[in-house]
Write a protein that binds this DNA or RNA. Structure first.
Lengths: 253, 253
DNA sequence: TATTTACATTGATCCTGATCAATGGAGCGA
DNA sequence: TCGCTCCATTGATCAGGATCAATGTAAATA
């Protein structure tokens, strides 16, 4: 599992002293809540986000029905949020990485409506929501940034809805790989080569297809020279053709 | 097209003097932004929402790419929000009725990311977003209610994602009908009998199925005695069995 | 009212992707 | 290092729903 290409360009590693690093010095401040805050405002945000929490692979951040207290900003690592259908089937509502905020679904009902679990060892910032709202009332830039983050989640979900409702499995998987690529890239990792943190089944639960279809489609992409797959390691060899897959004219439904 | 059962229990009609009715006297204040506000706060909200806008059937509220200025609260009527795929296929991200707020997707990028169009003659409240944010900074209850509404949209979208990713067409349509029923019911209309405001094709664009499948499935439901359909008029005859359709054990994917 | 257009229904056929099933590898714990 | 368990691949078959096509019906316009 060589991670040579997985090294981030910006330093994103945990500071030597454990998890004491503050928002003000966090390399994710360009992605996360702090965008647009000045030094003084950042400092106030820092003091609010007291707890940095380490999560082990497989550990849950929250579960359906848990009383809502915190939003969680991902510092490092990789998470999935999922719900269980009535028949026990898992449906994954999102994969989440550094700089993203999870738990916003709970605001509406004061209880989490999905489960969140770490897919690798990860670090979180715990954001007490009442305090965040309070601070948002005092710092317009923070307020606006928070609204933007919620709005972004809505847009993201609309994208998934289009994907699930209107694309065939080949296109969905291409979209998925390109989305991962883009997000890794935005965080300073390679856009063309990465390790999948999730299983084929989990990809399927996210994209609305069976794990066999995921596997077969990956194989097909490989045969077409679009990607190289070896287990969880993926290399995107032809981004152009991969993108073309999604813009097909013939696609209907 | 008798609309006897379509008469709302609460009065929801437009006041005689046009569209002057304020939030404080709006019958939707239990669904919309005003929840939890006291008289003085309501008054401030009233003064902010100056424009009440009448929309004719087929008229657009906003289109993709339009600069973001307003959120829109639906006072009466029925809307769809949709996006066009690359191939021109329409994908509907939501059907919206009285008390709901549309346009929140635009917060993130300052431009609308979807189109919104009235499916029948309707009335809107135009909410200038910067002023809303400003008022949210002063009225915690309004702020919290607004956050709840955004969160609710996220939850709703997750529900659709589960539906699209994990249910077969029969279950999707049952879920759709039950959802409409519940929403009409919450607004004082009949839960068991209503007029569909959208075409079969639009239902299909929402549920990720072709219009022929929508039509066939409705017919099948009718043959099974679950519903009675006559064009756009639908009567739900067996809510229990309709619900059972969705909780099936055998459902997989 | 007549004519046009948009919408809905129904049938026949085909194809994508699900399902069932077996085998092969990778990673983890003892 | 062995053995177990989880994960991935691949094949064969089947079915749900898409597609193509024709007809019927309701609403809109002249």
């Amino acid at each position: 599992m060589d991670a040579s290409n997985q090294q981030p360009v910006n330093k994103m590693t945990i500071s030597p002293g454990g998890l004491k690093q503050a928002c003000s010095s966090c390399s994710l401040r360009e992605l996360c809540l702090p965008i647009g805050l000045d030094a003084g405002e950042l400092d106030r945000l820092d003091r609010m986000v007291t707890r940095r929490k380490h999560m082990q692979r497989g550990e849950h951040v929250f579960r359906v029905g848990a009383p809502f207290q915190f939003l969680f900003a991902i510092r490092t690592g990789f998470f999935k949020t999922y719900e269980l259908q009535d028949d026990g089937q898992e449906h994954i509502t999102g994969f989440h990485m550094a700089g993203e905020i999870i738990g916003m679904d709970a605001i509406s009902t004061d209880h989490n409506t999905c489960n969140a679990v770490a897919l690798e060892d990860s670090d979180l910032c715990e954001i007490p929501f009442p305090q965040l709202e309070s601070l948002c009332r005092e710092i317009p830039a923070l307020q606006h940034q928070f609204h933007k983050l919620m709005s972004r989640e809505i847009i993201h979900d609309h994208g998934i809805m289009m994907l699930l409702g209107g694309m065939r499995s080949e296109e969905r998987l291409a979209a998925f790989l390109l989305n991962l690529s883009q997000r890794f890239s935005a965080r300073g990792y390679s856009a063309s080569e990465f390790h999948l943190r999730m299983t084929r089944a989990e990809i399927g639960h996210y994209l609305g297809m069976k794990l066999e279809t995921v596997s077969r489609t990956l194989t097909k992409f490989q045969e077409q020279g679009l990607i190289a797959v070896n287990n969880k390691h993926v290399e995107l060899l032809d981004l152009v053709r991969l993108r073309q897959l999604m813009n097909r004219e013939e696609c209907s439904l």
